[in-house]
Amino acid sequence: MEHLDLALLAQALPVNGLGFPRIYAPEIPSTNTLALQKVDEGAAPGTIVLTDAQPAGRGRQGRAWVTLPGQQILLSVIAYPSFAPHWLVMGAALAAVTALESVGVPAECVGLKWPNDVLVDGRKVAGILIETTTTAAGRLAAVIGMGMNVNGSLAPWPEIAQRATTLADALGRDFAREPIIIAYLRDLGATMMDLAARPAAARELRDRWRARLATLGHPTSVHQGANRIAGIAEDVTADGALVLRLADGTQRVITWGDVESA
């Protein structure tokens, strides 16, 4: 298994307040779970947890994430935001987009599936999982988990490969993980500093995020438990909720659920 180059990361981090201290082990069951434990232990803002293999990694409500040891980015950031953490959903997704473009992934190939799945050529390469908690002192803490399929192939899992891919599969070459991590932290850190400093930053973030949403304008179905809602993804609200236009002409505002192209 290929390990992250910690010396390379140490040269570039922290950046924009993120990336120090760093908690690394070749294998961590779940970086988000460990990060939440570190919050309980008083972890400093900007602390990151990263690993090469995450056997218990989870997506939304435990959704499985294929493990490709040494070939994925598995990273959690600890933050204590002074703003509503749903802005981090947009900020983290855009940071992943920026990071991909910074290593040469063509911008026209990269998009977002509402709200924060990162797509390359229409298939998912990265997902964000944000969990919040409160410290003993009542301070809001957020753990921003990001998993990205960088190298290797999902071909052994044909069902998953219909919807997801790796950068290597999509672009035909391998990528170093460290520059993507650094670029992601640089952009996410800058966004968080901006959100904390300027009220207008949230609206601007939402507009930038909206511009990258591949979901908009397309027939879309949303699975909410046993219910399925189908319509055209027409827009997003000021807070980022998805606006669906249903067949009967009415609008439905969606704040949760699994979104799929219909």
């Binding site: 509503a84 809001l140 609200t237 807070d239 909720a241 505002v253």
Partner: peptide, 18 residues
């Protein structure tokens, strides 16, 4: 006093930090 996060993610319907 408070039993929940100080500023949990706001659902759009509530507009802003709950």
């Amino acid at each position: 006093m408070q039993v929940v996060p100080v500023a949990p993610s706001a659902a759009p319907a509530t507009s802003g930090a709950a």
